[in-house]
Design a binder for these strands. Sequence first.
DNA 1: GCTATTGGTTTCTTTTAAGAAACCACATTT
DNA 2: AAATGTGGTTTCTTAAAAGAAACCAATAGC
Lengths: 119, 119
Amino acid sequence: MKLDDNLVLSGQCVQQILAIKDTMELISGKWKILIVVTLLLNGTMRFMELKKALNGIAAKKLSYDLRNLEINKLIDRKVIKSKPITVEYSITAHGRTLDNLISELMDWGLNHRKEIIRN
Amino acid sequence: MKLDDNLVLSGQCVQQILAIKDTMELISGKWKILIVVTLLLNGTMRFMELKKALNGIAAKKLSYDLRNLEINKLIDRKVIKSKPITVEYSITAHGRTLDNLISELMDWGLNHRKEIIRN
DNA sequence: GCTATTGGTTTCTTTTAAGAAACCACATTT
DNA sequence: AAATGTGGTTTCTTAAAAGAAACCAATAGC
């Protein structure tokens, strides 16, 4: 019976499916992946620089997403004791490991657009 | 000035960023990627089979997501004139091109878990 | 004393995603 | 006649994500 097969298959790859869910949770949302890409492209940036580069993001969303990315060790937050105080954000080594995934997202998206337009 | 540099950089890769957004829109949500993975693992499946394999999805969500995936040519919907009527869902050739991306999501997620647990 | 800059926080509102439950047409089985 | 299986739709409710606007502390410049 097919349903049993499904259950068996699902049972065999719980870890893999959880891994996919984990990744999706981390990168999904309207701004998170764009924040990462912006930092990858520009290197170290300050809060207001990011806000302007991301054109349209609310300060609340930016600080919220930055905190989330920091908790997950994808970006680094460094407070500079200047006057007024400035804060520098940059990608961590672990964050940089997202580049393959981001390339894949990009390549697939470009190809998908062709596929959808074609027909 | 740094802000100008950012604007220039952003200007140079509008297409790429749009491609990333496109892909994210297509795969984000709680169930869509799981539907694709389930169909990749099991081949052709009927509505009720999918519903049971996805353990917990509401019929409304399943039919909504299936329609969305079909519109984007990732899955194929085939009505079989049996009694009672049955409907078969399967991945299209284009949908199958998601496998690299899915592997990348999985690999990154597995590695991320190690990274987070480690420290 | 007034205004601007920096990096936020707080509060409130709107939009979007998701879930639960009931319903439906059609056909078969009991 | 009633129940069952199939593939949904409809309606209502809840939860989560996102946006807008006001506010704030510290400091500097005018």
